[in-house]
Simulated scan of single mutants.
Amino acid sequence: MTSSPGAGSAPEISGLGTRMRTLLELLESDIATLYPALGLDGYRPRFTPVVRALTAHGPLPIRDLARAMGVTHSAASQTVGQMSRRGLVALAVGEDARRRIVRLTERGRALVPALDAEWAAVQAAKAELEAELPYPLEELVLATLRALERRPFRERIADAARELPELPELPDPPVTPA
């Protein structure tokens, strides 16, 4: 795996978010090194969930694509925009003019066999990595996401802050529509 400064240690000044970004950057940068050998120049790891979802479900509105990928609408929209500029997906207006339907282009569909092989290799490498860990990483990430769905981190921070007299009272988190 590619190393970066501090990747082998966990400095006290780095928080959980920094460590998670470092982990993701290490994983994604190493996956990206496979793409040129597969003829996938300019392809990014974040495109694969879009390709896999569209291959499995066919054309989808961005909202449904985001749901299938487990990301926000904004994140899906940004990724789709990048893929559209590379000619991998096309957008069409849906029945409701506010909806945009995403479909793989011929160029995008042509990548599927190489991406299937890459996916199998990544899954095997993930299994090897998880065998070295005290807990399966994927299960830990999913359990963490479920816990945060039950009780957002913002609420946990606010409760912890109440116990620290040097911190001011934090405002209630904004209410987001479901």
Results as ranks from 00 to 15, higher is better:
Ser74Lys: 13
Ala66Pro: 07
Thr72Trp: 00
Pro61Lys: 05
Leu148Lys: 09
Gly87His: 00
His73Asp: 10
Leu145Ser: 11
Ala56Thr: 14
Arg154Ser: 14
Tyr135Thr: 15
Gln82Thr: 09
Ala121Ile: 15
Pro165Glu: 08
Arg44Leu: 15
Gly15Asn: 05
Ile101Arg: 04
Arg156Ala: 12
Tyr35Ser: 11
Pro61Ile: 05
Thr2Val: 14
Arg46Leu: 12
Pro113Arg: 01
Ser84Arg: 07
Arg99Glu: 15
Val122Lys: 07
Leu16Arg: 04
Gly39Ser: 03
Asp159Ser: 06
Arg86Thr: 02
Thr22Met: 12
Glu163Val: 09
Ala131Cys: 11
Leu104Val: 01
Arg154Trp: 04
Pro177Glu: 13
Ala32Asn: 11
Arg103Lys: 05
Leu142Cys: 12
Pro5Tyr: 00
Leu164Ile: 15
Met1Ser: 14
Asp172Thr: 06
Thr55Ser: 03
Arg156Phe: 02
Glu132Tyr: 06
Ala117His: 03
Glu169Trp: 02
Ser77Val: 08
Arg85Met: 10
Arg63Gln: 14
Val175Arg: 09
Leu145Ile: 15
Pro174Val: 14
Ser84Leu: 08
Ala127His: 10
Ala53Asp: 03
Ala178Ile: 15
Pro136Ile: 03
Val102Trp: 00
Gly8Thr: 11
Ala10Met: 11
Glu106Tyr: 00
Lys126His: 08
Ile13Asn: 08
Arg156Glu: 03
Arg98Pro: 09
Pro113Lys: 01
Gly81Met: 03
Ala121Cys: 14
Ile31Asn: 07
Pro136Gln: 04
Leu27Pro: 07
Val175Lys: 10
Glu149His: 12
Ala158Asp: 08
Glu25Arg: 10
Lys126Asp: 12
Tyr35Lys: 05
Arg156Ile: 13
Arg19Ala: 12
Ala120Met: 07
Pro168Val: 06
Gly15Met: 07
Ala158Cys: 10
Arg107Cys: 04
Pro113Ser: 03
Ala143Leu: 10
Leu60Cys: 02
Pro59Gly: 08
Ser4Phe: 07
Ala178Gly: 15
Ile31Asp: 10
Glu138Ser: 12
Gly87Pro: 03
Asp159Val: 03
Ala90Ile: 04
Val71Phe: 10
Thr48Glu: 11
Ala160Asn: 05
Glu28Gly: 15
Ile62Phe: 07
Thr48Phe: 05
Thr176Gln: 15
Leu115Cys: 06
Thr48Ile: 15
Gln123Pro: 06
Met83Arg: 01
Ala110Ile: 01
Thr22His: 02
Gly70Asn: 05
Glu12Thr: 12
Pro165His: 04
Pro177Gly: 15
Arg154Asn: 09
Asp172Lys: 06
Thr18Tyr: 06
Gly108Asn: 01
Arg154Leu: 13
Ser74Met: 10
Pro173Ser: 13
Val93Gln: 10
Val71Ile: 12
Thr176Arg: 15
Asp96Asn: 09
Ala143Gln: 09
Gly108Lys: 00
Ala97Pro: 15
Glu130Ser: 14
Leu140Gln: 09
Glu138Thr: 13
Glu155His: 07
Ser29Thr: 13
Pro134Thr: 07
Arg67Gly: 11
Arg100Ala: 06
Pro113Thr: 02
Leu38Lys: 02
Leu91His: 03
Thr72Val: 08
Ile31Glu: 13
Asp64Leu: 13
Leu111Val: 09
Met83Ser: 13
Gln78Asp: 10
Ala76Met: 08
Pro165Trp: 05
Pro152Val: 11
Ala110Cys: 00
Met83Thr: 00
